[in-house]
Structures are given as structure tokens and as C-alpha cells.
């Protein structure tokens, strides 16, 4: 399934919604989008990924890129699918992101 992407910025919170498959082919465009988002220096990047069915190494590297490009950036992943969570855990990326159930980050964090 091809990747679909949608992004927005509200205050210091960037939102990036991804659905479909984030593989080696689609990763460059996502990375470009993330670069564009980081240009606005957000504090938080909320990635809505509940309909993202696959994330390859290239996708995970985008997370690292974002963290290294902007130290202090908090990355939230909203409802990632279990296979993606599994890969995040096994490769150590899980510790670098916040996996949450809701887009309402403040509420999710409080809960």
C-alpha cells in the first residue's frame, strides 16, 4: 500500500500523519517533509501512525535523523501497530520516542 502523508504545525507542536508503508522507496519523501517541519523548530513532533502498516529501516532512521538534527525534540508516536513497536524495541529506538494512545499528548502524558 503506498504511503500517504499529511503534516501541519500548531504552535510548537508539529503533526505528521503517515499511513500505508514506509519503506526504502517512500522514506526520502518523508525525510524531506521532516526536514521541512524541523525548519520551524518545533518542541514536539507528533507522528500519527495508527494506519502505518510497515516501517523499514529507512523509516526508523528518519526518527534518528530528527533527534540528531534537533536535540531536545520530543517525538510522539500515536498508536503504532504492534509490529512497528516490536521493531522499535528490538533496535533500541523505543527508548528515544514516546509511544502514546492519543493525539492529545498532554492528556496522554498525564494519564
Amino acid at each position: 500500500m503506498p504511503l500517504a502523508m499529511n503534516s501541519s504545525l500548531e504552535g510548537k507542536t508539529a503533526r505528521l500523519e503517515l499511513s500505508g508503508e514506509l519503506d526504502g522507496n517512500s522514506a526520502p519523501s518523508v525525510r524531506q517533509e521532516v526536514e521541512k517541519i524541523l525548519g520551524a523548530s518545533p518542541d514536539r513532533l507528533v507522528m500519527v501512525v495508527d494506519r502505518l502498516t510497515f516501517m523499514a529501516s529507512a523509516g526508523l532512521r528518519i526518527l534518528i535523523f530528527a533527534k540528531q538534527r534537533q536535540p531536545g525534540l520530543k517525538i510522539y508516536m500515536v498508536q503504532p501497530q504492534p509490529t512497528i513497536v516490536d521493531t522499535l524495541k528490538k533496535t533500541g529506538f523505543y527508548d528515544g520516542v514516546y509511544v502514546v494512545d492519543s493525539e492529545d499528548i498532554d492528556k496522554a502524558a498525564a494519564g
Binding site: 523499514a56 526508523l60 528490538k90 533496535t91 533500541g92 529506538f93
Partner: peptide
């Protein structure tokens, strides 16, 4: 030897093990 070898992520998995 990596659960993520199929995704080509054995380097990350091994480094994560060593770090932990």
C-alpha cells in the same frame, strides 16, 4: 542472529544489546 535482520537492522539490534 537479529530478529530485525530481515529489515537489515542487525547493526542496531546488536548495538542495543551491547548498550543494555
Amino acid at each position: 542472529f537479529a530478529a530485525t535482520g530481515r529489515f537489515g537492522m542487525q547493526v542496531d539490534e546488536l548495538k542495543t544489546l551491547i548498550k543494555d
